[in-house]
């Protein structure tokens, strides 16, 4: 009886084709966004930058390479990239990316998405600790610490969206469903978007929290955790990082653009443009800002929590009034 509910119905061939196109579009998108960030930073530096398709070439090259494994490592090290990417891919089925709907959303899927991110994080951290390197230990400790502080902020943001739309399904609490909330409690929505942006920068290890291009292992967070991964494992990790950016970015743009009711290809192109604009913004921030001192990052995240907490208060007061 329950197996019946688990099967995904694809009755019409046309629908199947659309779904396939959507899946391919979402899966191919992440490296492009990384490319946008890289290009932006290059332009700010007065350079031409790598070709647009460079991230794809990098992934293909990595995928064809061999791998070097440390003597210290165990199966945990090999499982790390696989489980992390699998968790993110599973989360992809519940987050609307290039359209107003997710594929497999259900009531309460937001909790599953948050904990799938946590699953990926735990395996990245364990794989890093498996090498026995002090640097990777340092990166792991920072990663889990900052995640501990960004997770409450994320849940507060989700609570604001849930309260203002009365829904517990991610794709139902975003997009057009938020239009009313933007009208009645616009400031709260602005705060949520701001907090989500800080969470995005933290979770995706971007400036000002972490510098993905730094050269000193002592100061890294995400990059130092994956120092020992090579070949296809590293391809998984690179792709996973880009996918995480896409997913959190989609949450952000779907919360920030409530009025758009376009569907189909125009809608997909619009969301694509929005995501690229977000990547551009991240690129601009990376080009114009220095990273924060490590002990300041927790203040930034506390700030995000406070912003989302204020948003909760505004929404609750609005409901009361």
């Amino acid at each position: 009886m329950n197996l019946l509910a688990m099967t995904i119905h694809l009755p019409v061939p046309g629908v199947a084709a659309v779904v396939t196109a959507q899946v391919l579009g979402v899966l191919l998108l992440p490296p492009l966004l990384m490319s946008v960030i890289a290009k932006t930073k290059a332009w700010f530096g007065g350079r031409d930058g790598p070709p647009w398709l460079q991230p794809y070439f990098d992934l293909l090259k990595l995928f064809r390479k061999g791998a070097v494994y440390s003597h210290t490592t165990t199966w945990v090290f090999r499982a790390g990239p696989i489980v992390s990417l699998a968790a993110l891919l599973t989360a992809t089925t519940m987050i609307p990316v290039l359209g107003p709907n997710s594929w497999l959303g259900f009531k309460g899927d937001l909790i599953l998405v948050a904990y799938l991110f946590a699953l990926g994080r735990m395996f990245t951290v364990l794989a890093a600790m498996d090498t026995g390197s002090a640097f990777e230990g340092m990166g792991s400790a920072r990663e889990v610490t900052f995640a501990t502080m960004s997770e409450p902020a994320l849940f507060l943001c989700l609570a604001v969206l849930a309260i203002s739309t009365g829904n517990l399904q991610l794709d139902d609490m975003l997009g057009t469903n938020l239009a009313g909330a933007w009208h009645s409690v616009g400031p709260a929505m602005l705060l949520v978007v701001g907090a989500l942006f800080i969470i995005l920068l933290t979770e995706c290890s971007r400036i000002p929290v972490d510098d993905p291009l730094t050269h000193l292992e002592l100061t890294m967070i995400h990059e130092v955790m994956v120092l020992d991964h090579s070949g296809p494992d590293f391809a998984y990790i690179t792709y996973g990082a880009a996918l995480k950016f896409t997913l959190l970015g989609s949450l952000l743009v779907h919360a920030a653009m409530p009025q758009v009711a376009w569907v189909g290809l125009p809608g997909a192109l619009l969301w694509l443009a929005a995501l690229m604009a977000l990547a551009l913004l991240v690129g601009i921030i990376e080009s114009t800002m220095a990273r924060l001192r490590l002990n300041r990052v927790s203040l930034l995240l506390a700030g995000a929590t406070v912003l989302s907490g204020l948003a909760v208060l505004l929404v609750l007061f609005n409901k009361l009034a």
Partner: peptide
């Protein structure tokens, strides 16, 4: 390409 084993990268 071969899969090889080595020490952990000590930076």
């Amino acid at each position: 390409q071969p899969i090889t084993a080595g020490p952990t990268w000590g930076c």
